[in-house]
């Protein structure tokens, strides 16, 4: 019954070590790139780097919810594209930007509800169910503007572009602020509320959770809605950034999201890891893209490096995992 009061409450939570490891990794990469490239270490690039991290951070938060229940959401990359194209198309056709945002957002959420019903009620394997909606959502992204990217979304939408991406507060771009706010809110929900505990319980042992009175179907469905909300926010962010809707926006983002989670210590088996890890996870993804660009590495090399980092992060988790418990 000795709960060390000396140890901070955060560090005593499980998964905190993975978050710290990822954070230290990020700092190390930051120092390495700063030494290697004088263009990297400029204040403007650091601002820029934080902004680049934002979309992966946000979509990673949603994927984190789903992974914690032991499921996966493959559809989110396509939802990014679908929301981006839908909002973009509506704006270019003269719809009020706010209305366009809300309509596109609801479409995104609808995909989340559909995923949730397929996985929770109809017991489809998450991988298969969301593979289907992934293709479906990408199809809608292509359909909404007759298989063309949209034109420039126009000056009435300038406020939208500023508030979602280009504006800044205290020299930090809004995109990153949005990510931080969502991170804080979601982290609070997962760590301090009944709902959050239920999410972990479902991921750890769904039978025991159900027999303890957890409405497991509702929990799983809700995580898919959170995930599609995050993907929709990411889609809007990419639209704000580019100023036009592109059909392949968000391609492979579902996998980048998994990568950010896994680097940050969220297990794909469910039930373990903390959402804060997505921040250093996404940051490592971002700094590799950004930093390798500044040291002149080709795109192919960046992908190879990121792939290796993901594998290392999981290996590290597996190697140090079982040594902790297990009794005969």
């Amino acid at each position: 019954m000795s709960e060390g009061k000396t140890k901070s409450r955060f560090m005593s939570t499980k998964g905190a070590r993975s978050v710290m490891t990822a954070f230290i990794g990020f700092v190390a990469l930051f120092i390495i790139f700063s030494v290697l490239s004088s263009n990297f270490r400029t204040p403007a690039n650091v601002q820029n780097l934080l902004r680049q991290i934002a979309p992966i951070l946000i979509i990673g938060l949603g994927q984190g919810f789903v992974l914690l229940t032991g499921n996966i959401d493959l559809s989110i990359g396509s939802v990014v594209g679908m929301v981006c194209m839908t909002a973009g198309t509506l704006m270019t056709k003269g719809t009020n930007p706010l209305l366009a945002i809300l309509l596109a957002l609801s479409m995104g959420l609808l995909v989340g509800v559909l995923n949730g019903i397929l996985v929770a009620k109809f017991k489809l394997p998450a991988f298969i169910g969301t593979l289907g909606t992934m293709t479906l959502a990408r199809g809608i992204a292509q359909l909404v503007n007759n298989n063309r990217n949209t034109d420039f979304i126009g000056t009435e939408a300038q406020w939208f572009r500023d508030s979602f991406y280009y504006g800044d507060i205290l020299k930090v771009y809004n995109a990153f602020w949005i990510g931080l706010i969502l991170l804080t809110v979601f982290y609070f929900i997962l760590s301090k509320t009944k709902y959050g505990r239920h999410v972990y319980a479902v991921g750890s042992n769904i039978n025991a959770a159900r027999l303890s009175g957890v409405k497991t179907d509702n929990i799983i469905l809700s995580t898919y809605v959170v995930s599609s909300f995050c993907a929709s926010m990411t889609g809007l962010m990419l639209l704000a950034s580019a100023g036009m809707g592109t059909m392949d926006a968000g391609g492979s983002y579902e996998m980048y999201a998994v990568a950010a989670c896994v680097i940050g210590g969220i297990s794909t088996l469910g039930g373990s890891g903390i959402l804060l890890g997505v921040l250093p996870g996404a940051a490592i993804w971002g700094i590799l893209q950004n930093g390798l660009h500044f040291v002149g590495a080709p795109v192919a090399l960046r992908n190879i490096v990121i792939g290796i980092i993901v594998i290392l992060a999981v290996l590290l988790d597996i190697v140090r995992g079982p040594a902790l418990s297990k009794k005969g």
């Binding site: 009944k194 505990r197 972990y200 319980a201 750890s204 042992n205 025991a208 027999l211 039930g271």
Partner: peptide, 21 residues
């Protein structure tokens, strides 16, 4: 193991789970 415990959650979280209300 199958229905009673979430073995990879803490003892605390297991005891609290049905009583969070």
């Amino acid at each position: 193991k199958k229905d009673g415990l979430a073995t990879e959650l803490s003892i605390n979280d297991n005891l609290a789970l049905p009583n969070l209300d």
